[in-house]
Design a protein around this nucleic acid. Structure first.
Lengths: 138, 138
DNA sequence: CCATTACCTAGTACCTAACTCGGGAATTCC
DNA sequence: GGAATTCCCGAGTTAGGTACTAGGTAATGG
């Protein structure tokens, strides 16, 4: 599990789609402007989201992107995993360099913590976030 | 909230200290070897942990680092915040560039999510992690 | 046909994580 | 007191990922 600005852009963009899903599709140019990032960079993020089957693109005038599934089936963890390809593997892979046992211990602990975190974010769907109080007040 | 390998190194190192706290202090050289990272880099991480009053250093032979507080008073969130100085501020700071209102909305949602995550990690202490089942089995 | 949008590829500037080097300063043991 | 050991500190260097730029092609609606 990794959490960077890249993941934040993706999550925020997906929230944007969820909020406007009744209006059909949203153009990337709009999202790029509202998030103040370049269109091309957003396109690269959405290429990954599309490969992960989280969004669907529609070409031509009036086109754009919309969610590929209902918001309650899309978790925050899924979004972050889609754009942040993990390169982790906790350095000592498969006991190869762990002779004492203690080394693997802390690694194991970190993995447990990482799982906890993943489970937490997997339990939050786009629908949950959209339903939070701050939204209704606007 | 940000989660990178830097934070992972810090958490894993703190877990190391927590596991060996009855043995007095742990030298950075030992941690550097077990985590397979450079000593100097670890020193830089521990400089931040020290400034955050999470660890205490003891110089001279037989010296090293030990926790500055009991493990139950040190949360995972505190460790990560200590080493990952946040540069976030969600681009549009304080409605400055948010004319439509919608822009601030998604940003607000992200901040809420970030708060949730922080709250989650703030609720996990070093003591909790050390007490997890995987540890006792070793 | 033309404007608009998604889609694709290649290249690039910049930032920062991670490391290296070289020096201290405090403490303990002989 | 001298030497070994450890923490401390600052100024660099390197590698890789973030974020961008520039160029296209493909589909679609008016």
């Amino acid at each position: 599990m990794r959490l960077t600005t890249k993941g934040r852009y993706a999550v925020t963009a997906m929230l944007d789609l969820a909020l406007h899903q009744e209006k059909g599709s949203v153009a990337l140019a709009d999202i790029a402007e509202s998030q103040h990032i370049s269109l091309s960079y957003l396109e690269q993020l959405f290429a990954k989201l599309r490969k992960a089957d989280l969004v669907r693109g529609i070409r031509g005038p009036g086109g754009g992107y919309h969610l590929a599934k209902p918001p309650e089936e899309i978790s925050i963890a899924a979004i972050i995993s889609a754009v942040d390809e993990r390169v982790d593997i906790t350095s000592c892979r498969g006991n190869e360099n762990c002779d004492k046992g203690e080394r693997c211990l802390t690694h194991q602990l970190w993995e447990d913590l990482s799982d906890q975190l993943h489970g937490f974010l997997a339990g939050i769907s786009l629908r949950d976030v959209v339903g939070w109080p701050k939204v209704r007040q606007v």
